[in-house]
Design a protein around this nucleic acid. Structure first.
Lengths: 375, 375
DNA sequence: TGAGCCTCCGAAACCGGTTTCGGCAAGTGT
DNA sequence: ACACTTGCCGAAACCGGTTTCGGAGGCTCA
């Protein structure tokens, strides 16, 4: 026994000994191996015996210890998740729902969830490597995919199962689940165009992420379908401040957009700031549509029109796909695409101004309000 | 070999065999036992040998498999967390930070985190039991404590280590970490009283939770200290709608409060709704202070004055306390209380109206605005 | 010089499962 | 009646670690 620093251990930790497979075997007068094979549906066990064993195990409250089993089988029945929490991270608010979906589905299949968090791409890779190396999970869920994703390269090289939440540039051999945000962007453009908007601005999201590419493409496709070509696109914006800056830039153009479509709600919140500063009323002077269904959007005035993503469902689907992938199904068959649902707020409507009139309004407001007022 | 439903397994999963303790032993020409004892700091190993083993293990990239170790030691080096996600749940937005703190601290100590989610108190207990029974964790973090908490009873009875995020009525033998929200409530009252408010309303949180009791007590203590006794307390409010209802009730009194203190930001958002509906301007006509530091508060107009809780720090502290508790330290020594920090927004200020004047304003607005207008 | 005591290590049991292997008994075909 | 399956189970190895036990060798001390 090591001396170590075994500090004050409480008087007696009672802990009743748990019932092992040997206990069940003894009770029945058979061997451990027999019990194990019976419980694991080996074909060389008679149905009568199998039932007898099942009954005894049930009655004695036997439950196999997953880590004891793992040493032989190599499966810990756990799925891993590394959550990257950058400051400008849109997925924070959905984390709870995502986890809920994952955990619920995992629990239903008698799996558990091991998580780690990280603060940067490099850290994410490190945490992933650690979980994989320590074999704390049999497979991984990879949220927020990049077009070129180092996590995918790593897991591919290691031959470890994984499923993407989102897509990636080269998805050969990848299982994935995604919400079709590109289609949502196109839908939003069609909606705005139908209301009469002719100049529609776009605020993209984080560069390098796959969702950004897909939403840009969706926006462009929507514009083409509406036969519009005047499409000012701002710099990327991932948070409120960047969203405000993007909106200022768009509104400062000679022919500013009468509607701004944001790849993320986080940016849309900033658009509200900029619009307010420019004396524009949202929903009339300027239409805004976001994407994500952020809680903040609902408390804005007017409430933000946006697309809602069912994160819990995503988590459940991802878990299902991953477990099947671990079980050996071909990842190429494990792909799923769900639509996002539009949730109208009060931030979009028919244009009340032409772009030229809007430009005049903005210029005027820049004149009267003392510069640098915005909080 | 079981026939089972072993579906399409990919061509060949390469998986290089990992280096085991036996490999290290062979390399050195010693026994497995020797290597194990050397690596685990047993005292019967000469320093020279220990160093030789360490170097070889390091060089060969040996890392012990936690679940192989667990079968003998009974420790899986994982801490468990069951997150209850009711719909009216204030902790959702802080979950990311809390997890981040927990995971970071755990990872630093070479522990991992196993989570489960639940949808009700009963489910929480069930999930907890499952994790404990399957021995997926060596100890548990219990967020959002109740005054009388079934989880605590269960874990006490099982003799399993745990740490509370929050306190409980009878905390004998409990390790806990908490943020002193009671003191925050008292501080808010002192602030409002200092500004000249004489009638201050209180909107409590979820009944049965320990935080609700502590914040009520903190509010009461603050009122006593400020020598104020007119303290209307509304029904509990845990979400926006309930917060609005609570505010309407408070404002409908003969002598309505000129400031409303909310146990949670979620309720405070509803207070904004009610105030707006009553034609009151927040920060002047009516002061509002919340607690939690909800992101929604920052996008309100004016931004909500509230108390910020450092959830990441909480997670890190909880993890530290739990690991020490598992190591055998006396839980009674493992307790920690941090202050919340006030984050002023624009929602509080000196009263511009007396309660009587406020009552008149409210009554007037009830008259002019057509009823049932509020969204 | 011999008894007694450390120091340090090998050998082997052990933890709770899984998996392989061999063999007995009953059934089958001729 | 005899070889050949087949069904079913016991025995034992195995997985990757940890822990106990005993003993060889060197040292001290009377």
């Amino acid at each position: 026994m090591p001396t170590k620093t075994t500090a004050h251990r409480p008087p007696t930790r009672p802990r009743k000994r748990r019932v092992t497979i040997a206990d069940v075997a003894n009770e029945l007068g058979v061997t451990k191996g027999l019990v194990s094979r019976a419980l694991n549906d080996y074909p060389d066990i008679s149905e009568a015996t199998r039932e007898r064993v099942r009954a005894a195990a049930e009655a004695m409250g036997y439950r196999a210890l997953s880590h004891a089993r793992a040493i032989r089988t190599g499966q810990v029945r756990a799925l891993g998740l590394v959550i990257q929490l950058s400051d400008h991270d849109g997925q924070r608010p959905f984390l709870a729902d995502l986890l809920s979906g994952i955990s619920q589905a995992a629990s239903a299949a008698d799996w558990t969830v091991t998580i780690a968090t990280s603060t940067s791409d490099a850290d994410t890779l490190h945490q992933l490597g650690h979980l994989a190396d320590a074999h704390k999970a049999d497979g991984f869920i990879l949220p927020r995919t990049y077009e070129h994703d180092a996590r995918i390269d790593y897991l591919r090289a290691e031959g470890l199962p994984f499923v993407l939440y989102g897509r990636t540039a080269d998805d050969t051999g990848c299982a994935w689940y995604d919400v079709d945000s590109g289609a949502a962007m196109a839908e939003a453009v069609a909606l705005l165009a139908g209301l009469g908007h002719r100049v529609i601005g776009f605020v993209p999201g984080a560069t390098g992420t796959m969702y950004d590419r897909l939403r840009r493409e969706g926006f462009a496709a929507g514009m083409r379908a509406a036969h519009l070509d005047t499409a000012p696109v701002s710099d990327p914006a991932c948070d409120r401040a960047q969203g405000a800056a993007a909106a200022r830039a768009l509104l400062g153009r000679d022919l500013p957009p009468t509607a701004i479509l944001c790849a993320t709600d986080a940016a849309a919140v900033g658009v509200y700031d900029a619009a307010r500063a420019a004396g524009l009323s949202i929903g009339t002077d300027l239409s805004v549509i976001g994407y994500d269904g952020l809680p903040e959007g609902a408390v804005l005035d007017p409430p933000l029109s946006t697309f809602h993503v069912d994160a819990a469902r995503a988590g459940a689907r991802l878990t299902d796909l991953l477990i099947r992938s671990i079980a050996g199904e071909d990842p190429a068959d494990l792909r799923d695409l769900d639509p996002a649902t539009f949730r109208p707020g009060g931030s979009h409507g028919a244009p009340t101004l032409t772009p030229a009139e809007l430009a005049a309004r903005v210029a005027h407001s820049n004149h009267v309000s003392n510069p640098g007022r915005e909080r």
